[in-house]
Design a protein around this nucleic acid. Structure first.
Lengths: 129, 129
DNA sequence: CAATCTGTACTATTTGCTTAATACAATAAT
DNA sequence: ATTATTGTATTAAGCAAATAGTACAGATTG
């Protein structure tokens, strides 16, 4: 089950793409698994079917999912591809975060501090560093 | 000098607000300092003056800058306010990053790994952890 | 005083996103 | 064979963002 979270600050279909990518990367939708229909997913996410379809079509261009014309849409069975995507996303997220912190004028020490602070404040805390 | 970076995936004026906040937080524009005129800043950022004005007006609602009707726009002299804003931004950025990493299915250890990896890959490396 | 620069206001137009409401073809299910 | 479900396509409408162009009032500058 995907916990759809849409805000109004960015195009909806973009957010759908991101959250689907994360759902696949994290295993909410496993390799080869069939996705719910466009209409159903749109209802769950609270968006128009057209918008959901646009997101899903965008997803197909990366090869992450593929549509079987009349029987549904399926996650790729290429586990390598999924792992690669997941890694790329993690690196991208982390890189952007550090860049943003630098833009705020944070030095390395300060970035460390915020990192620890937030990690220690997490609910299920498993910080060991 | 602000290095304006605008993409087409989000409203431009939102991005302008963010980057101005960071410019003030990081000291590119110091307390009490006069900002360039709307038209000039718009030209530097490569956007329409109306768009830049919209961003600047949004900034005033936070009290970060204020307009003197005919002599220009100035950064607040309230250093406390700036520090508070900077802290809020840093915590927000870090919190969102960790949340996104979790959504990717990363456990604490993995988040640590990516953190180190990216920090160590930085140009002016000052990682000591 | 005259010129210039400031923020501000206004109208008009274009573009992209989103929703809505249908419709269709192909396959699966009964 | 019939029915239902699938992805897909199309048209229309509404909305916000962005741009363009113009104008005005007040202060500063010369």
């Amino acid at each position: 089950m995907v916990e759809w979270q849409i805000d109004n600050d960015r195009p909806v279909y973009t957010q759908l793409v991101e959250q689907m990518e994360r759902a696949v990367a994290s295993g909410v939708f496993g390799p080869g698994q069939r996705l719910p229909g466009v209409r159903e997913m749109a209802a769950e996410a609270g968006v128009n079917p057209n918008t959901m379809q646009r997101a899903l079509q965008a997803l197909e261009q990366t090869g992450l999912v593929h549509a079987k014309r009349t029987s549904g849409r399926f996650v790729t069975e290429d586990r390598e591809l999924i792992l690669t995507l997941r890694k790329r996303q993690a690196e991208s997220l982390t890189g952007r975060w550090v860049r943003d912190m630098r833009a705020l004028g944070c030095d390395g020490e300060e970035i460390d501090r915020y990192y620890r602070q937030v990690r220690e404040a997490e609910d299920g805390n498993d910080l060991k560093v």
